[in-house]
């Protein structure tokens, strides 16, 4: 599904990713763990199409070259990024944003756009599944939301957009244990044979609730070790230091 080959990225002459390579197949959950400054957020930014990076290498998503696609085109193809810091958009109602987003994607795929009633039914069901407070749907997007509410809102968007590849950029940071469980349950309930997850995190904690198929350790812009779920535990015990 996603093939990253020897990805290098620079910002203002500073190298951040130095030959990053990763393959993700449908149905898999990959976790990338790494210390601060290892290049985790740069990776998610580049995958989502954020500008401002000087990149080389290759990224293929379902055999199309990601670099030739605009941010929104990547979203249309089924790439979703749960942001580390979800943005506030004052004056824009959360459910209006969600509907606009879903219909933009459906339209780009040649699918029928949902009318207000169909959308309402969908969003109500998904909110219930995720224990997302429906009242928040009528509030301005992320404005006045707590850190946990913002992250839950990202997961709600993910479940409504139903992407092929979901990238979770430190979604667990700043969450209390209850919110963490809700986020994890959300991800688990969306796991299918034909979709995949890339979970970027500092801590092993989230992986107690989401069982990854593969764990990778990212340091200095490249993967230095890959393994199964046991690698996360080892990392938790020994710290990143022991891998360097």
């Amino acid at each position: 599904m996603l093939k990253i080959n020897n990805l290098k990225a620079k910002v203002e002459e500073k190298s951040i990713l130095n030959g990053f390579t990763l393959n993700i197949n449908p149905g898999e959950v990959h976790a990338i763990m790494g210390p601060n400054g290892s290049g985790k957020s740069t990776l998610s930014n580049i995958l989502s199409g954020k500008k401002g990076y000087d990149v080389s290498g290759e990224i293929l998503f379902e055999n199309s070259d990601l670099f030739s696609l605009e941010t929104e085109e990547r979203a249309h193809k089924g790439i979703f990024l749960a942001f580390q810091y979800p943005l506030e958009i004052p004056g824009v109602n959360t459910s209006v944003f969600l509907k606009t987003s879903l219909n933009a994607i459906r339209k780009a795929r040649g699918e029928k756009e949902l009318d207000a009633l169909e959308f309402l039914k969908l969003v109500k069901q998904k909110s219930k599944d995720l224990k997302f407070d429906e009242e928040k749907l009528n509030r301005q997007l992320n404005v006045g939301f707590s850190g946990g509410e913002k992250k839950k809102n990202e997961i709600l968007q993910m479940s409504i957009l139903n992407p092929k590849l979901s990238i979770l950029d430190e979604t667990d940071s700043g969450l209390d244990i209850d919110a963490l469980k809700i986020v994890a349950n959300g991800v688990n309930s969306l796991r299918r044979k034909n979709n995949a997850f890339l979970i970027i995190t500092h801590y092993q904690r989230l992986l107690d609730y989401i069982k990854p198929d593969h764990v990778h350790v990212l340091m200095n812009g490249k993967i230095i070790k890959s393994g199964g779920p046991e690698l996360a535990l080892e990392l938790e015990k020994k710290g990143y230091e022991s891998f360097s």
Binding site: T71, T100, Q157
Partner: peptide, 17 residues
């Protein structure tokens, strides 16, 4: 970028904001 990641093109994103 946030709006575009959610499938809106840049003009739709500006319109929304």
């Amino acid at each position: 970028h946030y709006c575009q990641q959610r499938g809106l093109n840049s003009e739709e994103a500006v319109g929304l904001i």
